[in-house]
Amino acid sequence: MKATLKANAVWLGVMILGFVAIDTAELVGVVNPFIENMLVTIGINVILATGLNLIIGFSGQFSLGHAGFMAVGAYATGIITQSIATPLGFYLSMMVGIVVAIIAALIVGMPTLRLRGDYLAIATMGAAEIIRILINNLKITNGAAGLFNIPALASWTTVYTLMCVTTIVTVNFIHSRGGRAVMAIREDEIAAEAMGINTTRWKLAAFVFGAATAAIGGSLHAAYIQTIAPNDFNIMASIAILIIVVLGGVGSITGTFVAAIVLGVLDTILQNFGTLRMIIYSLALILIMIFKPTGLLGNWELSFKRLNHHKEASAHE
């Protein structure tokens, strides 16, 4: 209990330190709008990829439709904040986005989570396409042209705070009864079922949870970038999130952070290379996958509790 408290205090310290560091950099003028854009993209990608990692890495279900749920959040914010352009309106729109994403995930998940592996990937991909095409053809979403002039209600501080909150919530879920049930399903579905775990229910829980965080990411995206179009949420967007998860290590939240940062920075640096950018980017991905097939961190997690434990153990020797 004491060890948990200590580790939590260290994590809080890390989060505050990160905030102060970016804030100071901003004040000093190191962070230009270009860099800030990179930081915000990284933050949003962390939120999206953490949710997807919960689905893929922890519950072992292969989903290719994450961008669909992101679109739900983005359009909820885009539509609602155009009438209520206040921070309150923004958070309200985020809530609406989450609720709609949860409902969509339930509708998609209930029949498809009985499928496994490739089938599930194709079914979720199809579901995301349906969401995209719906948005493309509705009046309220302004069709293929998308929404623009969305009020700028999310700054980097909003993104940073929500990134911390969603990460804490996700990690807390993983380290609870639900998270263990979900991991048991990944390890061995038949054994989990034989231990009395309702596998369909827990798979659905992880899927819905991931969809809800994707909606948060989408809301932030809409309120920061201020322009959204249906094509921002196509299959390539889903794959981009998947790349972060796989590159960081399937089943490692720390890895998701590392991969989101590495790819975010890489992407920004490569802006100067023009058309060569995509080639270098792909090459980097291929090289990492050849030399580190389990991702940068595998399923390793940074844990201050464990670090403390080691320190105390070596102090006793």
């Binding site: 263990r180 049930a181 991991m183 048991a184 390890e187 054994a191 231990m195």
Partner: peptide, 14 residues
């Protein structure tokens, strides 16, 4: 059919 990557304690807690 154990939950191979999880700890002994977690196997029981699950």
């Amino acid at each position: 059919r154990l939950f191979k990557d999880l700890t002994v304690l977690d196997n029981v807690r699950i």
